[in-house]
Amino acid sequence: MNPFIKAGIVGLSALLACTPAFALGDPIKTAIDATFAPHAMPTLDGKIEGFNVDMANLIGERLGKKVDLTGAQFSGLIPAFQAGTYDFLVAPVTVNKERAANLLFTEGFMDTNFAFVVPANAPEYKTLEDFKGKTIAVNKGSAYDSFLREKEKEFGWKVESYGTNTDAVAAVMAGRADANLAGNTVAAWAVKQNPRLKLSYEYATGLVWALSFRKGDEANRDLVDRAIECLKLDGSMAKLSEKWFGVTPVAGTTIVTPTKGFGTPGFDGYKDDDHQASCENLK
């Protein structure tokens, strides 16, 4: 995914405090990078569709609020968010220490793992060691590119970098590479689009994607956090995973498991409490 530009998030904590809760009667205003398939992508009729688009609308339904969703280039989201144009960003953002120092996060809505894509007739790969001696295609300059190159000597694979992940996937289909490495959802989307491919080994990073609010907006963050918990409990998140990724979530994974407290545990902004996750009293 597109990373938060450091300069774009520095100073967010200095913004004016947000209203205690979403304004009565007004729609929830949020935004997303509309070019990050399958989380958000343009349709032929000029609208936006994708996993995070559906999730945003379901959050609105659970809270009894209309959602005003804007799709824009990622570089334009940050300035608008700083200016208070949006209540929060529904763009998937990996929670880390630096970002949590400047942004207020919900609990994770899914794990941000790395996944290998291989030809449908390829053998089963169960560890990183199984890719020893293999040629792996990857999007040049991505986190996956860096990961492969850092471990190239350790695991003995050959890394081929391409301008886009689409080109890297094409290399696998053409037989120029044995596998492609990308984010788990992008990998799943590629496989869903082409029966000549299949998902292979998934490398767990221990990190999650979450939705981001401005510092000081705990009231609204907590409301959306509770809605996410509800979507996990009532099966909505599992259905979205099956719809957009072609993957049925495993029990215990972040996408179907509510997190204790509010926010992402282990990071700034997390609030530990004993509230019970449910779909009651959200409106």
Rank of each mutant, 00 (worst) to 15 (best):
K140F: 12
N139D: 14
E154D: 08
E154M: 08
V186P: 01
L207T: 14
L197T: 04
Y162K: 07
D178P: 03
G183H: 05
A174W: 04
E160L: 09
K192E: 02
K198A: 12
S146I: 13
D167S: 12
N139A: 15
V159P: 00
M173L: 15
G175A: 04
A187Y: 01
Y203N: 14
N165P: 00
V169C: 08
G163R: 04
K158Q: 08
E152T: 05
V191W: 00
L181H: 07
N194G: 01
A143E: 10
T205L: 09
V191A: 01
T185N: 03
D178I: 10
E152H: 08
F155I: 11
P195K: 12
A182Y: 02
K151G: 03
A143C: 11
A190L: 04
R149A: 05
A190Y: 12
A188V: 11
Q193W: 05
P195H: 09
A143D: 12
G183N: 09
K192Q: 13
A170C: 06
A171T: 06
A171G: 03
L199H: 03
F147M: 06
R149Q: 14
D178T: 08
V169S: 00
A179Y: 01
N194F: 01
S146D: 15
E150H: 09
V172P: 05
K153F: 00
R176F: 02
A174V: 08
G156M: 11
G163N: 07
F213W: 05
S146P: 09
A179L: 05
A204T: 15
F155C: 01
L211H: 05
E160M: 10
K153G: 08
V208D: 02
A179I: 11
G163A: 10
V172F: 03
T164E: 02
R196W: 01
R196Q: 15
F155Q: 06
G141M: 03
T164S: 10
W157P: 02
W209V: 14
S161L: 05
Q193D: 11
A168D: 02
T205W: 05
A179T: 07
Q193T: 13
G183Y: 00
K153H: 07
T166K: 13
N139R: 15
Y144N: 14
E160W: 08
V172D: 04
R196M: 13
S146C: 12
R214D: 00
Y162T: 06
A177R: 01
G141H: 07
K158G: 04
W157I: 06
F213E: 08
K153W: 02
T185W: 06
K215S: 04
